[in-house]
């Protein structure tokens, strides 16, 4: 499951920066520009976005004209599963509580690795629950909801 394109890093980076810069410049138009002497909230982001869009275009041109480094192969499955495990943790923490959120996160994250077994998930979850409770709740006195319901 490896993301395979003969991608050149500069083409992708160029596209990203051009898009991000242009989007920033466009979005900052909705704020007041002001004058150079008395700048409104829109001016500085507009300037930054425009410069970034130009730089992005230069990087893109460099990439298309050849040269530049090759992109690193991004492992797709871990990228998705690790991000997902973080999202799910955030969602479950306030709706169900740490006692459920943490083991689910560990299970999803472990699934991204080749070393997944249920036994390991359970052992790690139990250890981590004890550790997080000890450090965050007991030692640092923070309020982390163990069971939200």
């Amino acid at each position: 499951m490896i993301f395979k394109t003969n991608g050149r890093a500069d083409i992708e980076a160029g596209l990203f920066f051009t898009f991000f810069g242009a989007a920033t410049a466009a979005l900052s138009l909705q704020y007041r520009m002001g004058t150079i002497a008395a700048m409104g909230p829109g001016m500085f982001p507009f300037i930054l976005g425009s410069i970034l869009a130009v730089l992005g275009a230069i990087i893109l041109a460099k990439g298309i004209l050849g040269g530049g480094e090759k992109a690193r192969p991004l492992p797709l499955r871990p990228t998705i599963l690790i991000s997902l495990s973080i999202l799910v943790f955030a969602f479950l923490l306030l709706t169900v509580g740490l006692l459920v959120a943490l083991p689910v996160q560990v299970a999803i994250a472990m699934w991204a690795s080749e070393h997944f077994t249920w036994k390991r998930v359970i052992a790690l979850s139990l250890g981590l629950l004890a550790f997080c409770y000890g450090v965050f709740v007991y030692f640092l006195g923070m309020s982390v909801p163990l069971l939200a319901v």
């Binding site: 969602f91 690795s113 550790f131």
Partner: peptide, 22 residues
């Protein structure tokens, strides 16, 4: 495989504890 779930979980709980927000 032991380390990365620990890093993940400790970071996430830490992030929550900054302002008690998700």
């Amino acid at each position: 495989w032991v380390l990365f779930p620990i890093i993940l979980a400790v970071c996430c709980v830490g992030l929550f504890s900054i302002e008690n927000r998700v």
